[in-house]
């Protein structure tokens, strides 16, 4: 195994992150604060507690998930798309590196960045609302699995994309709607019965439900189902990456 190469890619990707640390740090802090001003203070004050949790606190897990998912996807997809776009990918392709090592380097860095942002949001949120973490270990597990699997998904999108429009397409048209309709800002039980059934087809519902359970012990779906869903999604992404590796799809002609 070429551990040096993994480290070189990881280090290079994190270097890009730290060069723009202020932006990496400030933008989630500001956007989270805005969510709390709007949903916590303005609207939240008119909403009753949700199953014993204040609305402001209720949205925190969903908010973290929302940001972590979109950040993981955008970071990983850009990280692999950019070298393809400017041509520097040649170096990775001609180096004594396996595709697996390339994936670990890029996806690891993207997952680290989104994890960092997730933690920043959690800390910011703690200034606005009283956070309770009922099940810390599952919380960390959910967060890590989400960072890694969505970074993998981003990596696949970055390999697939042939231009910048396509790079934006999947996150914009599929991920954002799924995340917003995934119960970030409400409990599925608040929906009309018919829509509750529809919501169960949204994979993000399971992630947010499980993650929220690890905070407040509240879940829309059983926790085991949530874990199985995220594990299944991870397996799906790994299978796709493996297939890309076997075929050299859109990387090696």
């Amino acid at each position: 195994m070429n551990a040096g190469a993994i480290w070189a890619i990881y280090r290079y990707e994190m270097g890009r992150f730290f060069r723009t640390l202020a932006q990496s740090f400030i933008s989630p802090v500001i956007s989270t604060s805005l969510y709390f001003v709007v949903f916590g203070a303005a609207i939240g004050s008119r909403i009753d507690e949700v199953e014993g949790v204040s609305y402001g606190a209720f949205i925190v897990p969903g908010l973290i998930m929302l940001t972590v998912m979109t950040q993981a996807i955008s970071n990983a997809s850009f990280a692999i798309y950019f070298p393809k776009f400017i041509g520097t990918i040649y170096e990775v392709l001609s180096a004594p590196v396996s595709f697996l090592e390339v994936v670990v380097g890029y996806v690891g860095a993207a997952a680290t960045k989104s994890l960092f942002i997730g933690v920043v949001i959690m800390v910011t949120a703690s200034f606005f609302v009283e956070l309770r973490i009922a099940h810390p270990v599952p919380m960390v597990l959910f967060l890590l699995l989400t960072c890694v699997s969505f970074a993998l998904m981003g990596f696949i999108i970055g390999i697939w994309a042939k231009n910048f429009e396509q790079l934006q397409l999947v996150p914009l048209l599929i991920v954002t709607p799924l995340v917003f309709l995934g119960g970030s800002f409400y409990s599925i039980s608040m929906l009309p019965a018919a829509w509750q059934t529809v919501a169960l087809f949204n994979p993000v519902v399971y992630l947010i439900s499980g993650f929220r359970w690890s905070f407040y012990g509240l879940a829309d779906v059983p926790v085991a189902v949530s874990l199985a869903a995220i594990a299944g999604f991870l397996a799906l992404c790994l299978a796709a990456v493996w297939w890309i590796f076997r075929t050299g799809w859109r990387i090696r002609s």
Partner: peptide, 18 residues
């Protein structure tokens, strides 16, 4: 990579080869 420094660029290349 346009924003990479020359030194970092050669260091990255060496690292990539393990």
């Amino acid at each position: 990579e346009p924003f990479q420094k020359v030194w970092d660029a050669v260091r990255f290349s060496r690292g990539l080869f393990g």
